[in-house]
Nucleic acid binder design. Structure first.
Lengths: 198, 198
DNA sequence: CGCGGTAACAAACATTTGTTTATTAGCAAG
DNA sequence: CTTGCTAATAAACAAATGTTTGTTACCGCG
């Protein structure tokens, strides 16, 4: 259904297939991408894929698991760092945007396609997402205790607003744009931490 | 594929079908929902749907077009209102959350499934989304001119952050939750306008 | 050269997909 | 009761889906 472009077949085939699938799942969705789409983009016939992968869903599982892992690995180091909670939060936002920018399609898969894992894998995916959110909750609560963050607002709403703003970035961030990932993250931190009031 | 529940068949059948499709498209995605899923949930055989609708894609088109329309209709009245830009922005955020809360699944379709419209309908969908974003850009720029909003931050980033936070709400908002839509919108406005710094 | 194993191909498989067709039930109007 | 219309059914259609199978090309190593 989707017109796809053939991709050069260097590197280990499994990795190439994974990258192509990541791209297509991110752009067309899991259910909108056929094994023939993937095979076509890799430059193979559909059946040939199965010499390297186990199933379509194994592809999705690996992409999602690895993807969440990247976000966790990028952000968790800052959670218990010794600098100010505010600086920590800023670093975490920047780190998040950098992971998104590194591969927006992968991020879309992580954010939206995990629902299409078979039920047995869903709980772990949800749990790891929750763990990710907890990182931000902890830092913010620490900031509140330290008197650096307003205590008069709903923390849950605040965290969800920040996460929402960040999770929307793959929708508009362009790796070829004028602003780099770190700059965008920094500007978002300016907005989200300081608000827009003058 | 998906296990769905039969729904009582009152009201005009076309409306029932639309509502069921909206629900399923929002929860399982357009490509993850079969006409048999819809028929099953409505309590009809697959072929019987076509006495009321033209095609699967016509369903999506109507849901998306109507959905975007609801957001525009809810927010646009505030854009040129005479109150302070800040109050206007707050009202717009509340209005947005109220539309989401009225039907989170529809919102998910509007935000994510419009990509699966056939190419001829994509430009208009994008244009109306752009128009929606422009509402917020205008109010914010006016706030900057009035000296009410910081001029030292990137407005594009600020708008995208606010829109991101709002567009993420269907992911977590629960109509049965403790907080109502208007309250959530108000709290989000607190966070997004004032920031989290104390 | 010949041998062995990896990975490609070509072709088919059983389902599932969106949709159409021909037929039948239900029901208001004459 | 009969006529006529709407909307349901049952059944099938072609195409697309994920995956499997048997066979062939390739390529390093003896």
């Amino acid at each position: 259904m989707a017109v796809t472009q053939k991709v050069d077949m260097d590197g280990k085939p499994r990795v190439v297939i994974m990258n192509v699938a990541m791209h297509l799942f991110g752009k067309q969705g899991f259910n909108g991408t056929s094994m023939r789409d993937i095979a076509n983009a890799v430059g193979l016939l559909p059946g040939s894929l199965y010499a390297h992968i186990e199933s379509k869903e194994a592809l999705l599982l690996e992409i999602v698991a690895d993807g969440i892992g990247r976000f966790l690995a990028a952000v968790e180091p800052y959670v218990a760092s010794s600098v100010s909670p505010l600086d920590r939060l800023r670093q975490m936002i920047i780190a998040h945007v950098e992971v998104v920018a590194d591969n927006p399609e992968r991020s879309q898969v992580v954010f939206h396609q995990w629902r299409f894992l078979s039920p047995e894998y869903i709980p772990e995916a949800i749990e790891r997402r929750r763990r990710y959110e907890t990182c931000f909750v902890e830092v913010i609560e620490e900031g509140v205790k330290a008197g650096l963050i307003r205590s008069d607002l709903n923390h849950r709403i605040a965290v969800l607003s920040i996460l929402g703003a960040m999770n929307w970035t793959p929708e508009w961030f362009s790796p070829d744009g004028r602003l780099g990932a770190a700059q965008v993250g920094d500007l978002m931190a300016d907005t989200l931490l300081g608000g827009i009031l003058s």
